[in-house]
Design a protein around this nucleic acid. Structure first.
Length: 504
RNA sequence: GGCGGCAUAGCCAAGUGGCUAAGGCAGAGGAUUGCAAAUCCUUCAUUCCCCGGUUCGAGUCCGGGUGCCGCCUCCA
């Protein structure tokens, strides 16, 4: 393995391109040290939609690209399993009960959504992160974090016992989002439990227990904790979980553009106030997803989960290809036209790999090949394309350029193979190059997952009958046999060397 | 109102001052085929939202518009 290559990546905080990994990242000097990468995960109150998956696929691209370029990565993705929506979902009537019962109800409510989330990311071939910490299982770390904030004077208690973070005390507040605190309008609406904030813009760290809401007793984790029984505020979990699994300073943190404010802004404030160290060296955010040029919403009827698309007969990996083929920082306009285009592209890539495998297996090893002669000189082309591909990734993950290299490989090799005389080792090298690209694209080109298993003898029997019919020029019968095979998912292609088939 | 992003062919999209504006999808014509499929060839933006300006030269820089999108504190 050659030395890892650095990338030029846009950084949200400085609004500029920066070299990644950052200079002060331990991964830069210690080859065994992984890049620490924290990603905001799902709130499990419902099935994730394709807008969520754009972010998760983008983050998967980041990991895959870094690994392709030679880096080790430790990715952590949180699962938010306690917030207002999950609480409401778990206990719609608001009936009060013991905290333990309410916590159990919450777990029972989120469990199927957690399961669905993992099933979906598997279908989309999103690699699993190293850890998926759950908020409800990390309460102790959150309690300790608030404890440190209290010690340092970065938290105050409201009248009802909830604790808040005083944003005015944190000098860097607003930096990430570029918001000027004085300009942020303080809404006229003041929530009933916000009356005792010192500043209406302060955010809650720990909410005191309300009837009907699951709660945790902080003294179970820290006997000296002044926090009342209650639950964590929205932002606290990410600061606590990232610290627990990746340390006080992260190489990279990413999420959707809409997480910048207030979520990530508040994470910075909490973590840096508590630890006195830089929280994140590099911030990365992906753009929004539109559907047919409109915001995705249930009322417009353009709201899609992955399952909705599968139900319409689309393929998860085509959805993946579509969602990754727009540069991560640009708005992505999801259309069914685009999805069909992605399906065509995916088919072309699969077809190309099949051709390489087929021709590699049948290519004779010519006498001059043993001498290293002959062939078409595909080698230099392949190394150029690999260079182009890697350079595209290093250029702020320029996926369009990377895909151009992939399709140049397809077009050029198809031409060479049509011309003949390609050496077996050249074909093998092309195949390996394509599969190498797919390590980043994640389209499972080299796998046959999900394909129907067909009994070859059954197919051969029909093919033989069809050939017989063709020889007799009984094309109606030949086409009927081909249709029968097609119905079973078998695609037949006639060639000068006879028919060949594959399962689709 | 404040802050930020985007605008390139029917669709997706690269491009960050200089040869003929990448690549993909769709379309058209052709080779091949019994018909298909796959593949290949040809074709598909005198032009980059509009108006000015800078420059020998601008899609690329500057100014001004227009349009679309996001954020401006969770629980609304």
């Amino acid at each position: 393995m050659s030395n890892p290559e650095t990338l030029s990546l846009y950084d949200t905080l400085t609004r500029s391109y920066k070299e990644f990994p950052p200079q002060d990242s331990p991964a830069r000097t210690n080859p065994d040290e992984p890049i620490s990468y924290y990603t905001c995960g799902p709130t499990v109150y419902d099935s994730a939609h394709i807008g969520n998956f754009r972010a998760y696929i983008f983050e998967d691209q980041v990991v895959r690209a870094l690994e392709y370029l030679g880096w080790k990565v430790k990715q952590v993705m949180n699962i938010t399993d306690v917030d207002d929506k999950t609480i409401k979902g778990a206990n719609p009537t608001g009936a009060d009960n013991e905290p333990r019962i309410l916590r159990e109800r919450l777990d029972a409510y989120t469990a199927p959504y957690i399961e669905a989330f993992f099933a979906d990311i598997d279908k989309l071939n999103i690699r699993r992160a190293a850890v998926y910490p759950r908020a409800t299982r990390t309460i102790g770390a959150m309690v300790l974090l608030v404890g440190r904030l209290i010690e340092k004077g970065f938290a105050y208690r409201g009248e009802d016992g909830s604790w808040y973070f005083p944003i005015r005390q944190f000098p860097g507040y607003g930096w990430l989002s570029g918001l000027d605190l004085e300009q942020v309008s303080v809404g006229a609406r003041v929530d009933s439990d916000e009356y005792d904030k010192l500043d209406a813009r302060d955010f809650v760290l720990w909410k005191t227990r309300r009837p009907g809401e699951p709660s945790w007793d902080p003294t179970e984790y820290d006997a000296a904790s002044p926090l009342p029984p209650g639950r964590p505020g929205w932002h606290l979990e990410c600061s606590a979980m990232s610290g627990r699994h990746l340390g006080e300073t992260l190489d990279m943190h990413s999420g959707g553009h809409d997480n910048i404010f207030p979520h990530h802004e508040n994470e910075i404030a909490q973590s840096e106030a508590a630890n006195g160290t830089t929280f994140v060296r590099h911030w990365l955010h992906c753009g929004y997803l539109l559907v047919e040029n409109q915001k995705m919403s249930k009322s417009l009827g353009n709201f899609f989960t992955l399952q909705n698309l599968l139900d319409r007969g689309h393929e998860a990996l085509a959805v993946r290809l579509l969602l990754l083929s727009t540069h991560y920082r640009k708005p992505l306009n999801f259309t069914f036209d685009g999805l069909r285009g992605a399906e065509a592209n995916l088919k072309r890539l699969r077809e190309f790999l099949r051709r390489l495998e087929r021709e590699e297996a049948s290519a004779p090893v010519a006498p001059d090949e043993e001498l290293g002669l002959g062939g078409t000189g595909a080698g230099p082309l392949l190394s150029k394309l690999k260079d182009d591909f890697a350079a595209a990734l290093r250029d702020d993950l320029n996926i369009s350029k990377a895909l151009a290299a992939v399709f140049e490989l397809v077009g050029t090799l198809n031409r060479l193979l049509d011309g003949g005389g390609v050496r077996r080792e050249e074909i093998a090298a092309a195949r390996k190059t394509l599969l190498g690209f797919d390590e980043v694209l994640g389209l499972r080109l080299g796998e046959n997952a999900g394909k129907a298993t067909i009994e070859p003898a059954w197919v051969e029997e029909r093919l033989a009958a069809r050939q017989q019919a063709r020889r007799e020029r009984d094309f109606a019968r030949a086409d009927a046999l081909r249709d029968e095979l097609a119905a079973a998912g078998v695609v037949v292609e006639d060639t000068p060397e006879g028919p060949r088939w594959h399962v689709e």
